[in-house]
Design a protein around this nucleic acid. Structure first.
Lengths: 147, 147
DNA sequence: CTGCCACTTCAAGTCGACTTGAGGTCAAGG
DNA sequence: CCTTGACCTCAAGTCGACTTGAAGTGGCAG
């Protein structure tokens, strides 16, 4: 099974070498060997990186993602926890759907003030089904930038 | 039309006063008056705040959100741009759906190693339809944390 | 009139996820 | 054998979105 040097992983995944090191630090991936100083990765990191990208895109922190998948890429959570995460994503999808529909409506509706348009208000309200959690807890995922 | 003092807005929206000031600074909302020193907001900021929450959740930066809606809450973008944003959200939704399905599959599939499971690989690959953009450009939205 | 307390401003701090820079190592090609 | 270039480590910097803290203001209840 041929190993990939960090540069190849970067080239094939589009993830910078510095980010790959950062991920390794964070325990999201693991290099399986060194060639001199250079990290060598097993080919399946490419799959893991996709998983990581998806997780980030879903608003999970690296820490949360690390908690879902071990460094070797195998899922580590109990089934219930996985299902809970899936449900969280589902809620997020519903929010995004509402925003998308709102934007599309705004693009097509020519009401003078959207603030008055009942369709608009209904769409926005639709998204407002948040259980109202105290600031103490961290209910909402937070996505992050890709430069 | 009765005005809301920043504390009431905070209480009703769940957004901290400091965040509201930050949003005002950023041009996302506007206070319409002062009572002494205190900012007074029109009731529709509550609606705007929902919009802002949705936008953040969709991975838009405050700057991007500010570009979509003026401080009075009326959408400001040309229709095409709005539709483009909607399409961007759609792509994001598809990614999230793939991740959700992957998680659900993992929760239900008892293959010894998911890295080998064809269903798993197919699901992950499904999400990999990214146009491969250079690091220079900023293709992906980045969501952010809520403490 | 007094005091409280919710607000104010402004600067600095925090957190996550990286990136950048300085200085160093080493395998391989010429 | 020497150079090159891709990698290394480690500390510090950056960016967005806020939060925190210090010091001040002012409406209003008593």
């Amino acid at each position: 099974m041929k190993l990939l040097d960090i540069g190849e992983v970067a080239a094939q995944s589009g993830v910078r070498a510095s980010a790959l090191r950062h991920y390794e630090e964070a325990g999201l991936i693991a290099s399986v060997a060194r060639h001199g100083l250079r990290r060598q990765f097993a080919p399946h990191v490419l799959l893991q990186l996709k998983l990581i990208a998806m997780g980030k895109s879903a608003g999970f922190t690296l820490e949360e993602i690390a908690a879902m998948f071990a460094a070797d890429g195998t899922p580590v959570l109990p089934r219930d926890a996985l299902r809970a995460k899936a449900d969280a994503i589902d809620r997020r999808i519903r929010e995004l759907t509402a925003l998308r529909d709102t934007l599309r409506h705004v693009a097509d509706c020519s009401a003078p003030s959207h603030m008055e348009c009942p369709t608009f208000r209904r769409l926005v309200d639709l998204a407002g089904k948040r259980p109202r959690v105290r600031t103490a807890a961290a209910p909402t995922p937070r996505p992050r930038p890709t430069r």
